[in-house]
Simulated scan of single mutants.
Amino acid sequence: MTLSNLHEFLGLKDRHVLITGAGGGIGRALVAAFTAAGAVVSGADRELQSMSELSLAYRLVFDLTSRTQVHEAVNSFINDQGTPDVLINNAGFTRGETLDQVDGDVWEREVSINLNGAFHVTTPIVDAMSKRGSGSIVFISSVNALSHFGNPAYSAAKAGLISYVKALAVERGRYGIRANAICPGSVRTPAWDHRLQNQPDLLARVLPHYPLGRMVTPEEVAQATLFLASSAASGITGTALAVDAGLTAGNLRFINDVLAGEN
């Protein structure tokens, strides 16, 4: 497929795409993927410096925990640049924890960033999209929204995103708006570097849980997001797509531990 045919297939050439969390590992892969698809890409992040090396049409800076900051930045963006054709809600945050480590402050911070923040970004944009009569929104959720793998507060927030996706799909579909979610498993970004420094054997313990025997890459998450956002997925809305190297398909370690040697 030629570049011209690819652009025609995806229908994103010259479309304006806004990506939150643009300066992170997955965010940078998203910027690269949508740029390669011919889109005009703008980015948002908590700090301007994290986006300084990215080729972006427009840069928004806000803290997701501040409703005022979010609304001011997003409304200013819409007034200056118009309503984006695509919104990618990628920004998020978590830390490894079990239920015993979650107190009220942890719970409120993770829900504020991962769920409430995405809602505050989306609301003015989906309103503007509704008035125009078209729009595509993709949320980066997590496999933690589908099954429990620890991080209870983060998991609750990411599960909330999937419910929000369904609400948008059902109640805003009549305005030409599609909403979907991507649910990555562990993604090999720089966020893993400090964990691997502290626990050099961590990957050896993590990877056997994945049927493909590896983590997914930021580029694989970006490619799946690109598809759901594009006109190639024009009939798809209200879905949650796992991009997880098979993690949620089943538990091979359980099979090997329980059934191995019975035949």
Rank of each mutant, 00 (worst) to 15 (best):
S186T: 14
L228D: 01
A181V: 13
S230C: 06
T237C: 09
G235T: 10
F227S: 09
G213T: 06
A181S: 15
L228S: 01
R205A: 15
F227L: 13
A222N: 03
P208Q: 12
A224Q: 11
R214N: 07
L228K: 04
D193W: 01
L212N: 05
D201I: 03
P190A: 04
L212K: 10
A179G: 13
A229L: 02
S230E: 13
V206P: 00
E219A: 15
D244S: 07
T225N: 07
T225S: 09
G213W: 05
N198T: 11
P211I: 06
P200C: 05
L196M: 15
G185A: 14
D201L: 12
A232V: 11
R214V: 05
T225D: 08
L226H: 12
P208Y: 10
D201R: 11
N180P: 08
S186C: 08
V216G: 01
G213E: 13
A179L: 12
Q223T: 12
A229Y: 01
M215N: 00
P190E: 10
R188K: 11
T237A: 10
P218Y: 06
G238Y: 10
A242M: 08
W192V: 01
V187F: 05
L203R: 10
V216M: 07
G213H: 08
G246S: 13
I182G: 10
M215W: 15
L207D: 00
Y210P: 10
E220Y: 02
P190C: 09
T189F: 05
T189G: 11
S230F: 07
E220L: 09
W192F: 03
V187I: 15
L212Y: 13
P190V: 02
S186W: 13
P218E: 03
L202Q: 07
R188V: 00
A233Q: 08
D244M: 13
L203H: 02
S230V: 05
T189H: 08
G235R: 02
P190R: 03
G235L: 06
I236Q: 00
H209S: 14
N180W: 11
L228P: 06
V206A: 05
W192D: 00
Q197C: 01
L196A: 03
R195N: 05
V221G: 06
C183F: 11
H194E: 14
S234K: 14
A240Y: 01
L241R: 12
A242N: 11
L202T: 00
Q199Y: 07
L196E: 15
A233S: 14
N180M: 11
A224T: 15
